[in-house]
Design a protein around this nucleic acid. Sequence first.
DNA 1: TGTTCATATCAATATTTTTTGATTTGAGGT
DNA 2: ACCTCAAATCAAAAAATATTGATATGAACA
Lengths: 100, 100
Amino acid sequence: MESYQKIAKVFKALCDPKRLAILEQLRSGEKCACVLQEPMDLTQSGLSYHMKILCDSGLVVSRQEGKWTHYRLSETGREKAMHLLLAVTAPDAASASFDK
Amino acid sequence: MESYQKIAKVFKALCDPKRLAILEQLRSGEKCACVLQEPMDLTQSGLSYHMKILCDSGLVVSRQEGKWTHYRLSETGREKAMHLLLAVTAPDAASASFDK
DNA sequence: TGTTCATATCAATATTTTTTGATTTGAGGT
DNA sequence: ACCTCAAATCAAAAAATATTGATATGAACA
C-alpha cells in the first residue's frame, strides 16, 4: 500500500495556483521551460522549483534537448492520480451506502 | 470557469497525511468526530481544523445530531473532484498526442 | 579552451499551513 | 438557571512551503 506521504505528493502538485496555471499551459502540448515561464509571475528558479514538484508527482514528465528542458503531461501519471483519488475517496466495499 | 484557488482547495484536502488517514476512516461509513479523533495523533481542535478543510473541499459532509457532529464521504464531492482532476491534467481537445 | 545560454541548485527570507492550549458556543440534562 | 459535554474558534508558536537572488552545472558553439 502506498504511504500517505506518497499519495499526498501527487495531490500537492495540484494545490498551488501557479502549478495549476502551468498545467493549463501544458494541456495544449509540450512546452519548453522558457516558454512556460514567460507568461507567468515567476522567476527562473521559481519555475524550476514548481516543475520539480510537478515531475515528482508523476503528472508531468520532462525531456532534455540540448540545453533546453521540455515538459509535457503524462497520461500514465494522470491515470494513476485518478485511481488514487478514487481509492482515497470512495467508500470501501463493505459499506454500501454513503451520502449524495 | 473555476478559479485556481477554488480548484486548489479541493486538492488541498488530499495533500496532508492526517487528512488522508481521516478519509480512510470515513471509507467504512459515517463517523462521529470523537470516534475519528481517538485513533489519531490529533488534539480536539486539530481534528476540527482538518475536518473544516475536508468539508470545505466538498469531499466530506457533516451532520449535526445533538451535540455530536457526524462526518461522511460525499459522492457528489468525489465526482466533482474526479472531473476536476481530469479537467486539469488531460490534454485539451486540440492537442491530440501526449506522453504515455 | 573559453564563452554563452538554459536550467538546476543553494542559502536566506517571506509566506502559508499546521499545531497547541485556552476560550467560546450551543445542545442537553438536572 | 446551572452544569456538563462535544465541537468550533481564536491567538500564539512551530513547522512546512514558496520566493528570491546568487551561484553551479552542463550543453552548444566559436
